[in-house]
Design a protein around this nucleic acid. Structure first.
Lengths: 160, 160
DNA sequence: GATGAAACTGCTCCAAG
DNA sequence: CTTGGAGCAGTTTCATC
């Protein structure tokens, strides 16, 4: 690991995950530090890339019909270049908002957010016709988001 | 849908998803608006709950060993109260950072971030022994995050 | 919608303990 | 690590076009 974090650093991360636009003086108060050292800690965390950036959480359901689909994928071949090609294809599709390589029988799981099942099917057709190397896939349509944007439980990793 | 958004609102959302801590005057410049009307739009978006909040993106891999696991779950029973009980159990576990109800044969998919496979197994044991109603599950260990924290492609939903 | 400005709050850096 | 503060930048509200 690049950096050793103490409990205060971890608390800073936990707060920022939930309240990314908190003012730095409020943040300092929340971790029982004065302004300056808290600011320096945050600088270090950002410089080290541990805080990768900040983003707004958007409630898409409030202004647009859409579908979320999880897809398990198996590739035709399993040479290194096949994985690279598939991952490039995934990177080029903005509707694929997450993708994970898996151990075991399946190669990948990815998450699609798109307008409707028709546009979902277009995406899959594009993946099949391109050189992505997708062999078999299975689609799981999401009917309800039970828990989303759940923060990483950074507290679990304090002092590791 | 609660609110009608025009192309500028959507652009504001797209920018805020990626740069949640951008200053409001910079944001105004980016959408070719002056300070005041841009600020009013953002107020409306936040008040309507479309901007749900802001959060830092954390690079956990830079400071802690951890495992990510996706789990498909099937419940013992399928009465309304069974779903409620399971979803409550999910809500109580901070290591479960995402959970989606699925159409088709499987009931749920959820995502776990935890220290190691031992702590993952503890979580599953806890779910099995509790009244969550978990019958069958399958674990997919993540070996690589190919694409994560991918923003919702809000541009797709402009003018809907 | 644009502009300009006033009053305020917060940020960044620095000095001194 | 603390406090205090100087100078600056960003925020929010207002009045005017």
């Amino acid at each position: 690991m690049a950096l050793k974090l103490d409990a205060r650093d971890v608390k800073i991360l936990a707060i920022l995950q939930q309240e990314g636009r908190i003012s730095k003086s409020d943040l300092a108060r929340r971790v029982n530090l004065s302004n300056t050292p808290c600011w320096e800690r945050l600088q270090r965390l950002e410089a080290a890339g541990i805080v990768r950036g900040y983003g707004a959480r958007i409630a898409l359901e409030l202004f647009a019909e859409h579908v979320t689909v999880f897809v398990t994928a198996e590739l035709e071949n399993h040479r290194n270049e096949d994985f690279v090609r598939f991952e490039d294809a995934v990177g080029r599709e903005p509707e694929i908002i997450g993708c994970w390589a898996l151990g075991g029988g399946l190669d990948y799981l990815f998450q699609v957010v798109t307008r409707n099942v028709t546009s979902y099917q277009s995406l899959i057709d594009r993946m099949l016709e391109s050189e992505a190397g997708l062999k078999r896939y299975y689609s799981y349509i999401v009917t309800k988001e039970v828990k989303a944007g759940g923060a990483i439980p950074v507290e679990l990793f304090a002092g590791t």
